[in-house]
Design a protein around this nucleic acid. Structure first.
Lengths: 165, 165
DNA sequence: ACTATTTAGTTTATACTTAAACGAAATTAC
DNA sequence: GTAATTTCGTTTAAGTATAAACTAAATAGT
């Protein structure tokens, strides 16, 4: 009694000429299938999550530290969200949080030595996982995928300006 | 003081030959840029979310009803997750939940008339949004995108068997 | 100076997500 | 028929996410 997954049901219900909708479905399925593996792997191996990895990455690439607002802006999430993730990372000793001397509203967040060690392991592992999951395509095919995605994203960003009102 | 977003920082930090990693980054960016617009639109216009839409879609395509377990399996989420989403949909009168007569453990969930009306609006709207966001590419380009994504997903599913241990 | 406004970050309420523990019901083993 | 096991769904605890209300601090306007 293994049910059809929702994607396949939707695909069957869609008219043949719903090109855009079908392409989006393909995008969701491809993204989700990769994300699922990454999520499970990181949870099992590092007892960690992608949001934590993302914050560590931002801080690893900005060793002078970032403010809460800068983190929120870079990760495109709310500041309230960052408050929670950074608090938990700080509890685990992976980041350090200090009030700025020049402006007491501002928090400066830096990755700790322990954080760097963890991040380097996760980062290498992440690369390996992606390389393994995507392997089997030629260099040209990978490039074609990348260019189609880039072209699409740029159009989406252009087309979505209408919605940002 | 608009910070670079994380994607661009990562891209700069990556070696030129990290093809797979760069393709994955392109996939994440493209997916996220579309998802963000959909999320905001659905939240504003319907005070609803994608998980709610997904459950309604599954039930709209299966008018005889689905069990909690079938919903969880189709949407690839845990049963605990479904419990919550269905409870909120039922509170809003969008779905109906009844204990099966033949097996009192089993819940049969059906979409209500009100649920169908909402779903039909959301569904049409969803299609329109996707068509609008992806517009500007030729039919061939859309097809190329779709095929590259399909090819990639099939490889990912093949390659990830190694992780399902 | 002093009031008003803006800015930075936290808190709160709610929703979504998982894993794991749990309760109830059905099935299997004997 | 009873005991053990499996199955279905809920509950719980914790993390992640948002929007909106809030606090504290800095800045602007006068």
């Amino acid at each position: 009694m293994t049910e059809k997954n929702l994607y396949e049901s939707i695909l069957e219900s869609l008219p043949e000429d719903a090109d855009h909708r079908i392409a989006w479905l393909a995008l969701v399925r491809c993204f989700s299938s990769i994300e699922r593996v990454l999520l499970k792997h990181f949870a099992q191996k590092y007892n960690s999550s992608l949001p934590r990895y993302d914050v560590l990455t931002a801080l690893a690439l900005n060793r002078d530290g970032l403010t809460m607002g800068e983190l929120a802006s870079m990760l495109m999430v709310t500041k309230g969200n960052i408050t929670g993730v950074v608090r938990r990372l700080a509890q685990d000793g992976l980041v350090l949080k200090n009030t700025s001397k020049s402006d007491r509203r501002v928090q400066s967040v830096k990755i700790s030595a322990k954080g760097v060690r963890l991040w380097e392991k996760m980062h290498a592992d992440y690369d390996d996982m992606i390389a393994l999951l995507l392997s089997g395509q030629s260099v040209e095919q990978i490039k074609e995928l990348r260019q189609a995605l880039r072209r699409t994203r740029l159009l989406v960003e252009k087309n979505s300006v209408a919605f940002n009102s």
